[in-house]
Every structure is written in C-alpha cells, then in structure tokens.
Design a protein around this nucleic acid. Sequence first.
DNA 1: TGATATATTGAATATATATTCAATATATAT
DNA 2: ATATATATTGAATATATATTCAATATATCA
Lengths: 208, 208
Amino acid sequence: MARSKEQNERMRETRKEKIRTAALSQFVKQGLFATRIQDIAVEAGIAQGLLYHYYGSKEEIFVDLINDALDKTIEASYSVRDMEADPGEKIRFALERLVEIIENSQTFLDTCRLITQATNSTAIPQAAQDLIQEKRNIPYQVIEKIMAAGQKEGTIIAGDPKMLAIFFWTSINGLAIYYSTNNNREVKLDYRVIASMFLVKTERESEE
Amino acid sequence: MARSKEQNERMRETRKEKIRTAALSQFVKQGLFATRIQDIAVEAGIAQGLLYHYYGSKEEIFVDLINDALDKTIEASYSVRDMEADPGEKIRFALERLVEIIENSQTFLDTCRLITQATNSTAIPQAAQDLIQEKRNIPYQVIEKIMAAGQKEGTIIAGDPKMLAIFFWTSINGLAIYYSTNNNREVKLDYRVIASMFLVKTERESEE
DNA sequence: TGATATATTGAATATATATTCAATATATAT
DNA sequence: ATATATATTGAATATATATTCAATATATCA
C-alpha cells in the first residue's frame, strides 16, 4: 500500500480549497464564462490538467462555490434570528454588523457578487440555478418574521413585512455590489440611516 | 446609382436598432460571454453574417448598449435635478417614480442589470470600462447635491451627503436587481419606506 | 428593363479553450 | 530500499464559436 487514506483525504481537501479560492477570485472578477480553466490553474499555482483530478469541470467548481455562498448567507440570517434580543434590536444590530462587514470583509463582498452574478444569468449550470431556487429566499423569510414580530411589539414600522424584508436585503445587497467595485473608501457609512427605514422613532432619538 | 442615400441610412438605423434590442435581451439574460453571435442573430431574425455589416464584433454592440444605458441613468438624474420643487420634494418624488418604474418597466430593469453586469466584470471591453469610469458617478453627484441642499433647508436628515447619495442609488439598484429576477409581483412596494431614510419627519407624518 | 449598389445568406475558416491522456514525479508503507 | 498508489505535468485532441467571404437576392435609379 502507499499513502494512508486519511492523509490523502486531508491533502485532497487542502488542494481543493486552494482551487476554490482561486476560482472564486477569478469568477468574481471576470464571471463564469470569461474565466478560463487556465486562469484558475495559474492563480492556484497548478497545471490545468490537475484541476480535473479535483473537479469534473469548471461548472462543477462554480456550483460548489455557489452552494457555499448561499449557505453563508443563510447562516448569517440564522445568527440574527437566534440573537437574544427584541426584534427591533435584532434588525438594528444586524444592519450595524452587515454595514461593518461590507466596509471590511472582501470575502463577504465576493459572496454577494457571486450570488448576484449567478442570480442574474440563465446561462449558469442548472445545478446552480436549482440551489438558488431552493436557498435564496430563506434569508428573506427569516427577516420577514423578525419584522412581523417587531410590528407586534411596536418597534418596527407598519407595512407588509415581506416588503420590509425585501427592502432590508436589497439595500444591503445593493451596497455590497457598489462597494465591491469602488475601492474609494473615503465615505464612512452610518448603518442608522438604513435602520431608520424600519425602526419606529423613539422620543429620545427624534430629538438627537 | 441604386438606392438613395437617405433611405439607406434610415434602413440601416432600423436594422441596427433591431440588433441592439435582440442583443440587449440576450446580454441581460445570459451575460456578454455566454451570449453567442448566433443567439443575437436568431433573436433578431437574421443570419449571423449580416450582423457584421452593422457591428464589427459582439463587443462593439455591448459597448453601444452600455453607452445607451449609462446615458439613460444620467438623463433620469438630470430630470430630477431640474424639477421645480424643493430638494426634499425632489428626493421624495424621484423615489416614488423610480419604485413605480421598477415595478412596471422591463426596460429600466434591463438597463440596471446591464450596468451592474458591466460594472462587476473586468473582462468586458476596455471601451465599456472607460465609459463606466466616465459616466457612472454622475447620478451619484446629482443626488449628493440635492441632499446637501435639502440639509440646508432642514428637510433632509444630517450626515455626509455623499453617503446619502450612495444609500439612495444602491437601494434603488439593489431593488431593481432583485425585481428583474423575481417575477413574483405579489408584494406592492411603498416608496415612502425608502424615503424615510432621507427625509426629516414632520409632525403631521409622525402622527399618521 | 437593365445597371448597380447594397443587403443578405450560410458555408468555410480561424481561433480559442475545455478536456483528455500518456508520461513522470512523489510520498508512504512494508 | 522498493513497491505502489496517487499527484502532477503539459502536450495533444476535441469542440465550440467568432469571423470571413464568395455567392445570391433585392431595391432603386436611369
């Protein structure tokens, strides 16, 4: 026998991760179709051929990445849902956190860009489209529920909670898309401006 | 001599327009790279070869469309700037109009999508990138000025007007991107939710 | 009607790139 | 140290599609 099974498994995962990272970087910059296998191989520092030991095709890598990206956004929404706080506070805190992440995390921006890219093309692999169909709405539903709960409490403004959830995520997504292609970081963002869309103003705040 | 010059000119423009319309529809659905010349030709109802009588390449059509799209967004922002109204009213009215357009105009959604697509890929033609560099910020600057004027008047909330302009356009853009890939139109959008990000609340409104 | 310029077609060609594969290298177990 | 399974390479092949081009059609003018 040669190398141990477990060690091989670990090596395989590490190498796959390297390929995924390179592919994500390329897909985000160029898109799925303009990215060549060659581009990914060069960025990962390997030969083209080797790529096919780990993934069956370029599309397969893309699907893997989309799946990851969708899971990350779902996880993020669950962590908001599971916070120990009132609904209004959850919304406020989530926005504070998301705006901070947009300003500081390239990974988050890449994730948003990849999902937007995939959502906006019918030419991406069917498997990716299915994943989007299946997972895309979960974060919207999570926020919708929090909005509805906040309305009962009186901390969230009136209106269709579905609509409020749409405004919540499309604002964040629009901002992320903008930021990922504007290196100019001279403007500091204040999450409270976005939060004011959803939160009922208290007396104290009105006087600030 | 054969056909008259003017008549030819007109025919050429009509045909070019047909090609542009087909190309826009395909680019928006599939993106520049996944769209084949064949796809455009089929949708325009002509042979592949004919396309090259009107455009030198696929990329040239793309650049033409991007230019159009950018000009449209600039025109839209100018029409807001030139309104006969106070700054706060301009913002309110612009948002009302934009939300309505998002809900009803496929052309507007396509325009947003095309620009987002172009802005998010480094693989698009250099000429398109230059146009974006040159024109993209104009609508942001227009809104920034209106925000600043509104702050002087006391109808727009405090904060860096550059930031407010960013929130203004990224909200609209995020919404447009979302809507262009969600046929589900069961939710009616209320522009006043977005407007409340920017407008100082009057007594009357607070009591509504 | 015939002459001529332009439009139009679709097959042929060129080119780019995804994928395969035979050859070689490398790491571990015995 | 050797055997062996797996990793790795890069050239060869297959394929897709952008672009060209020779042939044909069509519309106007004289």
